[in-house]
């Protein structure tokens, strides 16, 4: 990935909330993050997408100052992550991939104990926790133990916990993992309102509709590297085109497409034509190739993702 040297003065970045340059993380011989460069600007929602093992979570952990880099530079709030972890973490709100709420305590006490780690005085913490419980709609659950909460409630509580120190930036690793559609929508709504308050948000997700909906900019990672970076809509137009026409796979359909010199790709039992004029392509296909079924639809981030990272299963 190209670096952006003009943002760097003597290794320290001034204008970006996060700036990474040739950032690298090795575990022995395994390269988990391979000299990536990116920057996150104030107030934006920035996404990291990629298959399992692409290096997203490792990058998140380096940003959170809990996993030391093995090469390159990484600055958060203009401070080096190795030199100033405490100062950085004080302004950071973290939603980890795994629920790590404290099962020994109630909802309220979880937030209170956490606020103590930040050194927030008791009176201030009490007031803030009231607000946060209202924000994530958990007021009625305040005295409930953690194991009595649903998955969605736990995620909301973790979000509230991440906000207890009034962070400048939120780092969320798969914030809606395992949630039902209703619970996901609540989280999205909350993240949107946090962005409206000027918070910078960095997140990873496997849900591409979520990324398209939330992110101002995103990167797609694979094999420890960043493949592309940009606004979701721009990426779709650039890599796939506005629309897709899909037909059920059949040898005569393929032959017909080849005869017409129409570029297409085959995915399993589907033939896909990337196009900017879906109606014409669909009509031509129906009239000349006689396919079983034709579907014209807008292209999505998922199409970009699969095109760039392939369809091989990752473990």
């Amino acid at each position: 990935m190209e670096a952006r040297p003009y943002y760097f003065t003597g290794g320290a970045c001034i204008s970006a909330i996060i700036s990474a340059d040739r950032l690298e993380k090795r575990f022995g011989t395994l390269v988990a993050v391979d000299r990536i460069g990116f920057e996150v600007r104030k107030g934006e929602v920035f996404g990291f997408l990629g298959p399992n093992g692409a290096g997203k979570t490792t990058t998140m952990k380096m940003i959170q100052c809990i996993s030391p880099r093995t090469g390159g530079s990484l600055a958060v709030f203009g401070m080096d992550v190795d030199a100033h972890p405490r100062e950085i973490k004080r302004q950071l709100g973290v939603v980890p991939q795994e629920n790590n709420l404290d099962p020994d305590f109630t909802v309220y006490r979880n937030l209170l104990v956490y606020s103590r780690y930040f050194g927030i005085p008791r009176a201030e913490a009490d007031a803030r926790i009231e607000e946060l419980l209202e924000f994530v709609q958990l007021q009625e659950k305040r005295d409930v133990m953690i194991d009595k909460l649903s998955g969605g409630m736990k995620r909301r509580l973790i979000l509230a916990r991440a906000l207890v120190n009034m962070p400048e930036m939120l780092v969320l690793d798969e914030p809606t993992i395992g949630l039902d559609p209703q619970a996901r929508h609540i989280i999205w709504e909350k993240l949107k309102s946090l962005q409206a308050l000027g918070k910078t948000i960095v997140l990873t997700t496997h849900y591409l509709d979520e990324a398209a909906r939330l992110c101002d900019r995103l990167v797609i990672m694979d094999n420890a590297k960043i493949l592309v970076e940009g606004n979701p809509q721009d990426l779709i137009l650039e890599h796939v085109g506005a629309d897709i026409v899909e037909a059920e796979y059949a040898p005569d359909v393929v032959a017909c497409l080849q005869d017409m010199d129409m570029p297409f790709e085959t995915f399993g039992d589907m033939v896909q034509v990337f196009t900017d004029s879906p109606h014409e392509v669909a009509r031509t296909l129906l009239e000349t190739c006689d396919p079983k079924r034709v579907l014209a639809r807008p292209a999505t981030l998922e199409d970009v993702f699969l095109k760039l990272t392939g369809r091989t299963l990752r473990e």
Binding site: Q64, R86, P96, N100, D102, Y117, G119
Partner: peptide, 14 residues
């Protein structure tokens, strides 16, 4: 099991 240490080191505590 509880990942309590992970939760704590996400705060200013090392």
């Amino acid at each position: 099991y509880q990942k309590t240490f992970d939760a704590i080191i996400a705060t200013p505590i090392s």
